[in-house]
């Protein structure tokens, strides 16, 4: 089941140059990658990065945007909570959470920051 594009643009995603560099590094090792916004427990806001196809995209997933040519998904229920957020994908030191791939090189992981804003004032 293909995910649907959000009806409105109230949640968006962007990536820092460092995150984009990590993605292109990953694309040399994998056929493609996809991001899933984590929701709860120990990894809370972590962006989970998997090889393309690792996670089955379902009806519950909303595509909120593309980063470095790779899709970024979020559970439709979470989408409601994230409205008016612009998610910024970035990279920090430390191993990746859960089953997520590292941010390009080992010992680096993807993180998210957020800009809470109105749709018109979200030009980060």
């Amino acid at each position: 089941m293909a995910a649907t594009k959000p009806a409105s643009e109230t949640v968006s995603v962007a990536a820092t140059p460092e995150a984009l560099a990590a993605i292109s590094q990953l694309l040399k090792q994998h056929k493609g990658v996809a991001f899933f916004q984590s929701g709860g427990c120990c990894d809370n806001s972590a962006p989970m990065c998997f090889e393309d196809g690792e996670m089955i995209i379902g009806k519950v997933d909303r595509l909120i945007g593309m980063v470095g040519g790779c899709p970024y998904y979020m559970d439709f229920r979470q989408y409601e909570v994230y409205k008016n957020n612009r998610i910024i994908l970035d990279v920090e030191d430390g191993d990746a959470d859960g089953f997520s791939l590292p941010a390009g090189t080992e010992g680096r992981h993807f993180v998210t920051r957020a800009k809470v804003c109105t749709p018109n004032l979200c030009n980060v």
């Binding site: 984590s38 709860g40 120990c42 990894d43 972590a46 989970m48 859960g98």
Partner: peptide, 8 residues
């Protein structure tokens, strides 16, 4: 653990 990992 975490929900996305749980789903996986």
């Amino acid at each position: 653990g975490e929900t996305v990992t749980g789903r996986l």
